[in-house]
Write a protein that binds this DNA or RNA. Sequence first.
DNA 1: TGCCGTGGAGAACGCTCGTTCTCTACCTTA
DNA 2: TAAGGTAGAGAACGAGCGTTCTCCACGGCA
Lengths: 186, 186
Amino acid sequence: MVVTTDTEARERVLEAADRLFYAKSAHAVGMDELRAEAGVSLKKLYQLFDGKEALVEEVLRRREEAITAETMKYVLRASTPEEQVLAVFDWMADSSGTTDFRGCAFINSYAELGPSSDRVTAVVRHQKSGVRGAIAAMVAATGRPEWVADSIFLLFEGAMTNTAITVSSEPARQAQKAARFLLEST
Amino acid sequence: MVVTTDTEARERVLEAADRLFYAKSAHAVGMDELRAEAGVSLKKLYQLFDGKEALVEEVLRRREEAITAETMKYVLRASTPEEQVLAVFDWMADSSGTTDFRGCAFINSYAELGPSSDRVTAVVRHQKSGVRGAIAAMVAATGRPEWVADSIFLLFEGAMTNTAITVSSEPARQAQKAARFLLEST
DNA sequence: TGCCGTGGAGAACGCTCGTTCTCTACCTTA
DNA sequence: TAAGGTAGAGAACGAGCGTTCTCCACGGCA
């Protein structure tokens, strides 16, 4: 028998749940499909998580951390504060290149589960305010006014959804171009 | 007995479906709840529509027309081409004031049903390309380059989702401010 | 070796869904 | 009045869901 700790099983479930929920939306993924994908028994699944809603919540929290870390890699690669702001659109363009890019998982979850789950709504609001804050901090470092940060955040959000819907990285590039203009002309 | 034609019953079903699907997401609304809300028998419901997926599709088509007409009212009220472009953000700010504003119904439907329904995906793409085209036409009338139209469209999209998530018209106003800046400085 | 406790496999449960079918009441028309 | 057809109410059905329970195999330990 392959030995796996609860921690490892937890991570396998979260990884599978994140992937499946994002690709197919939460209500389209059954707990049994999840169990099979994670290679875990149904008993253990319910022993590790309080239920589907709690699982969705944890998946979103985990994804928030993962995305933050990944975008950081792009941001820290840049030298000037301006280039750091623009780097988040490079991350988006690269991400949209991968198959099955489906836009912002938080917006998607809010659309599907927001009306019925306060916990999901709370995590989504938290992520959005985090992204907004991160962009605001970078823009502040450039010395531009705060409304520029607001604008770039909204460009980012609009590009995320439309990059998914059009299945093209064009919106990401258009948003980056607009952000560059805003930074250069203020 | 109250006499109702099939056309009237159809419209009642579509109105109820649009309202409920938008407020609670499609999978959270059962056909029986819909039947009760529309005041129609289950038999007639299935006689008027081929099934739930077809109903969602028709609801989105109908909403696309309705939103186009409503925003037109705002646009035509404005005198200059620049003010016409900015008027769509007035529409958004006003709409978000109504209770139960949930952002863009097309983005929401894409998030929930896009992976499982090609028909829904097609309607969503159609609506997005329509909005993008309408903004492009208005921006072209101002003499600004096309990338300005792309930017304003993405600002619009980002503001739609974040106006819903933050339950505030602030993103709509921020996007309008950014759009005004883009128009004035190009 | 015999016992106990843990854990996995998957059957079972209760519920809700989308969809169809049955039955009955009523209106129309001859 | 009698017959026929239409439409509504809602029961029925099969499937799938989230969740729980049963059963058994297997390992550690006295």
